[in-house]
Amino acid sequence: MIIEGRVHKYGDNVDTDVIIPARYLNTTDPARLAAHCMEDIDASFVSSVKPGDIIVGGMNFGCGSSREHAPLAIKGSGVSFVLAKSFARIFFRNAINIGLAILECPEAVDGIRDGDTVEIDVDTGVITNKTTAERFTAQPFPPFLQKIIAAGGLMASIAAGKGARG
């Protein structure tokens, strides 16, 4: 799968409270969550985000609470991919479990600026910054996680009777 989109770039330790503030957690509807996505860190995100856009973050992206509302809000806002130097572990699980594509690649994050256009080959981990023509390669997921993603997420893999065994 090849993804291409415009980048919204943020720094280190983007926490789930700024991705989707707790005051909006009284709903689980991705569209309603998306209406407040990134509100406390980037008030213009909701009006500027276009389907297919890519979020790029620094270290420890998605730290804080376990709220799955955070990747749901990001996915609901049309974002196709999140690239970061590293992910907080619960966000990492949640993204995979709900089928939001993510990868970790510190070099690529350093080589991408806000507003750049980036292409990501999810299968090979090759990341191309089309604005600067620079290329980077991220470590692709281990087979265990690829199986969950290929099934369309954790619940789909369970429903298919395959379980989530590695």
Partner: peptide, 15 residues
Amino acid sequence: GVGSTDMAAGMATGR
């Protein structure tokens, strides 16, 4: 701590 989908899978399978 895990997310809601892990919780759903945990409730369904105990794993």
